[in-house]
Design a protein around this nucleic acid. Structure first.
Lengths: 116, 116
DNA sequence: CTAATTGTCAACCATTTGGTTTAATATGTA
DNA sequence: TACATATTAAACCAAATGGTTGACAATTAG
């Protein structure tokens, strides 16, 4: 029994865990670009960038459309909503715990102090 | 010239890209737990879970305090703010682009149609 | 003191990753 | 046709990843 949602998150977070891929996303935020254009700022081969883009495609963060021999890449930020939701989940739980702790300390003024 | 901020993001997203580690974070959202307690739900050795926890510590998402022989782990969701901010960045740019496109299509009603 | 418990460490292993190089495919241009 | 351009594919490589096992250290319990 594998969690589909989880597998998606794996791919999205994995895609985001690399600075090259994050920069590619940034570039695509401005405008659609070809593979060669995307590769231009990096000190690595086109083939390497091509692989990075495939990772982003697997995570569904990038959509590709072929126009003749050039592949135009487009950002699709929609899947990021899942990642954000996931992160929020941890933050929310964490904040609740902190609130509960603060309340506890307020009611038991000596709770945090060391015993003699 | 390495970007410090970027290195942090690498670690955070990398930590989040594994379902075991995400589940550990979830467990720690509820309450502080020991390594053994954290390992209990998983079908892997304690040593493996121990490694996962170290990854979370490197990303500063988990803080450890030793009480006798048991290591209590605590969630620190604060660094997640950076990850969220990063994600929001892509989303914002993306939304702007979509808005611009919508505006363009509104002004040029024939823009999207094929030429004869 | 002797067990048992909690956890890490080091060595090992198969697989994946991020990169390279070289060749191949597909499309456009002279 | 021949050549250049845009991109992928395949083979390869070193390093990192996710897991195991067995030995070790530290703490607690009997």
């Amino acid at each position: 029994m594998v969690n589909i949602e989880a597998v998606e998150l794996d791919g999205i977070f994995y895609a985001l865990a690399d600075p090259t891929r994050r920069q590619i996303l940034k570039m695509l935020g401005e405008q659609t670009r070809s593979i060669t254009e995307l590769a231009e700022p990096f000190r690595m081969t086109l083939a390497a960038v091509s692989k990075h883009i495939k990772v982003l495609e697997r995570a569904k963060l990038v959509k590709r459309t072929k126009q003749g021999r050039v592949h135009q890449c487009e950002l699709d930020a929609a899947p990021l909503a899942k990642a954000e939701e996931c992160i929020r989940f941890y933050q929310d739980f964490w904040n609740e715990r902190l609130d509960a702790l603060a309340l506890y300390l307020e009611r038991e003024p000596n709770a945090g102090k060391k015993r003699k």
